[in-house]
C-alpha cells in the first residue's frame, strides 16, 4: 500500500515534469520538430547580416513562416536562405523578400511583400526579387566617409 502510494506520487511528479517540458519545447520553444504544414522557398541575398535560422517571416506584419536554413554560396558570394512558409500563404512569382530589422537594434526578420503576378511559387522554387539587409553601420560609415572626403 505504502509502496503503491509512493510509486503513484513519483509517477505524478514525472508526468508533471514531462508536461511542463513539452509545453516549453513545443509551445514556447517553437520547435524544430513542430513542423507546421507549409512549403519551402529559396531566396538569395547579397547580405543578410544578422538573420539567423529560426528567424521570423512576416507579411503585412503577420507571422507567416520561419527561416529554416541559411547557407553560403561561395561561387556568387551570396547567402542562400531557405524559407518555410505556412500553408495557405500565397507567394507570387514577383513577390519581394527583404531582410529587415525590428526597431533600430532589434532582431532581423524577413519581410514579404506581395507581387502583382497571378502565378504563385510552389515548393522548392526561388524568390527572385530580394532586398538585402540595410546595415546601420554601413550607412553611418558611408555618410562619414563621403562627408570627410569632400
Amino acid at each position: 500500500m505504502k509502496r503503491l502510494n509512493l510509486q503513484l506520487l513519483t509517477g505524478i511528479f514525472v508526468m508533471l515534469g514531462l508536461a511542463a517540458f513539452s509545453y516549453q519545447a513545443v509551445t514556447i520553444g517553437g520547435g524544430n520538430f513542430r513542423q507546421q504544414p507549409g512549403y519551402t522557398l529559396m531566396a538569395r541575398f547579397d547580405n543578410i547580416s544578422g538573420l539567423r535560422p529560426g528567424g521570423i517571416i512576416e507579411a503585412a506584419g503577420v507571422r507567416v513562416g520561419t527561416v529554416s536554413k541559411i547557407e553560403f554560396d561561395p561561387d556568387n558570394y551570396q547567402a542562400i536562405v531557405t524559407l518555410r512558409i505556412n500553408e495557405g500563404v500565397p507567394v507570387q512569382e514577383d513577390a519581394i523578400a527583404a531582410v529587415r530589422t525590428q526597431g533600430i537594434i532589434g532582431e532581423k526578420y524577413i519581410k514579404l511583400t506581395a507581387g502583382g503576378f497571378p502565378d504563385l511559387l510552389s515548393d522548392g522554387m526561388q524568390i527572385t526579387e530580394t532586398e538585402s539587409a540595410v546595415s546601420l553601420e554601413e550607412l553611418v560609415s558611408k555618410y562619414i566617409f563621403s562627408g570627410s572626403s569632400e
Binding site: 511528479f13 514525472v14 508533471l16 515534469g17 514531462l18 511542463a20 517540458f21 509545453y23 516549453q24 514556447i28
Partner: peptide
C-alpha cells in the same frame, strides 16, 4: 540525474 531536470521544467513553467 532524472529528478532535477524534471523539477527544473516544473520550476520554469510556474515561473513563467
Amino acid at each position: 540525474l532524472l529528478s532535477v531536470p524534471l523539477l527544473t521544467m516544473v520550476f520554469d513553467f510556474v515561473a513563467l
